[in-house]
Simulated assay, not measured.
Amino acid sequence: MQMRRLGRNGLLVSAIGLGCMRMSNIMGGPQPPLHGDRDKESVKTIEAALDAGITLLNTGDFYGMGHNETLVAEAIRGRRDRAFLSVKCGIQRTHTGTILGMDGRPSSIKNYAAYSLQRLGVDHIDLYQPGRVDPSVPYEETIGAVADLIGEGKVRHLGVSEVNADQLRKAHSVHPVAALEIEYSLASRFIERAVLPVARELGIGVVAYGVVTQGLLAGAMRKQVVDPALAASFPRFHGESLQKNLTTVEFLEHMAATKGRTPAQLATAWMLSRGDDIVALLGMSRRSHLSENLGALDISFSSEDLDALDKVFAPGAIVGSRS
C-alpha cells in the first residue's frame, strides 16, 4: 500500500481510503437486519481493506442513523491500531432520508462526538469533521467545539468537509485543519480554481470523494438504467446532460481499453496523480471490488496521457450540476 501524508501535520494514511457510506441505507427507511448477510459482507469488506493496507476508514454519524458506525466498530474490534477513523457529523435527516440541514452548534457537535465514540467503541476519533457549514452558527464556533474535543483527547485532528476557500481559511485560523474532504474527480474539478490552492498554501491535505462520480466515470451508467432518484438529485445524470456526459466518458473508456485497465482504475489513478497531498476515497460495500480499486495504485500516465485527459475533461466538460 502506498502511504501519503495529509498536509503539514504529517498524518500518514493510505493513498486510497475506504468510504463506508454505501454500506448503510443513507436515503432513509428501515435498515437491513443488523448482522444480516449485507452487514456481514460489509464488515468483511472493511476487514479485507485493513488487511490490504488501507488505513483510512471514512464514516459519518448520519449514515444510516448510526448504523454505519456500528459496522465499522465490529470490523475494527481487535485491530483499532490499524485503522485511521475519519468521522463526519451534524447533518440532520428525517427517517425517510430527507436532509433537514446541518446543526453546527458547539453543544451539538460535542453531543455527536460522544455518541460516535460510544457506537465506534473507541476512546478517540482520529479525524473529526462537521459534515457541512451550518449557516445559522458562526463557523468559528463550530470549529471551536472540535478544537475543544481535541484538547480533551477525544479527537486527534480537525477535518472540514465541503467548504469554500474563505471558510477553509476561517476554520484554519481557529485550529489547524489537517484535511479537507470534498468532491474531486475528472468530472468535478471546481476545487482547482480557488479551494485547492488555499489548501496547499495552508498545508491542508485533501480527501477526495466522488472519484468515479457515482459510476459515471466507471462506465456503469452506459450499461444500466439510471436510478430515477439519482437522476433527480444529480442533474448531470438526467436526460441530455447524461447523454453528453457518456459521450465524453467514451475517451476514458477507450484509454482504459488500450492499457488493459478499467475506466474506474484510470479515474482513480488520475486522482492520485494530482499530488501527494491527495487521498482518493473510494466507496465499497463488497470485497469483490477491492482488487480492482487497489489496481489503480500501480498505474502511471505519460505526459501525453495527462495532457489528453486534462483537455477532454477540462473544467465544465461534464455538464449538469453535481447536486
Rank of each mutant, 00 (worst) to 15 (best):
K244H: 14
S241T: 05
T59V: 06
S136Q: 13
L12V: 10
H157M: 13
L252Y: 00
G205N: 12
N68P: 03
T142M: 10
A15Q: 09
E201P: 02
V249E: 05
N25P: 07
F313P: 00
P30S: 05
E192I: 02
G90C: 02
I150F: 09
E140W: 08
V133Q: 10
N164M: 10
F234N: 07
V174N: 12
R79F: 03
P228E: 13
Y139K: 11
E162Q: 12
M3L: 15
L12Y: 05
R132P: 09
L297A: 01
G283I: 01
Q214Y: 12
V279L: 03
I76S: 00
T96G: 06
E162F: 07
I143R: 12
V225Y: 06
V43F: 05
P263Y: 04
A267K: 04
K311R: 08
G66P: 02
R8W: 04
P135R: 12
A48F: 03
S42N: 06
H157C: 14
D81Y: 00
V137Y: 11
G239P: 00
A145M: 09
M221T: 13
Y184W: 07
L186W: 10
A178W: 03
S285N: 05
H172G: 04
E181C: 12
G219W: 12
P228R: 14
R5E: 10
A269Q: 08
A208C: 11
I16H: 02
L158S: 12
L272Y: 06
G7V: 07
E140V: 14
V195I: 09
E140S: 14
S14I: 05
F251E: 15
R236S: 12
D148E: 13
G7Y: 03
I278G: 02
P263V: 02
R236M: 10
P33Q: 15
V163Q: 08
V122W: 12
E192Q: 10
G131D: 14
G144V: 03
D37C: 05
R193F: 05
L34D: 11
E183V: 04
L196I: 05
H289R: 08
R156P: 03
Q92L: 13
G53S: 10
A269L: 02
H172Q: 07
L11M: 13
V225R: 07
H35T: 07
D148K: 04
G19D: 09
A231R: 14
S273F: 02
L216F: 13
A113Q: 13
A314T: 07
G205K: 11
N58W: 02
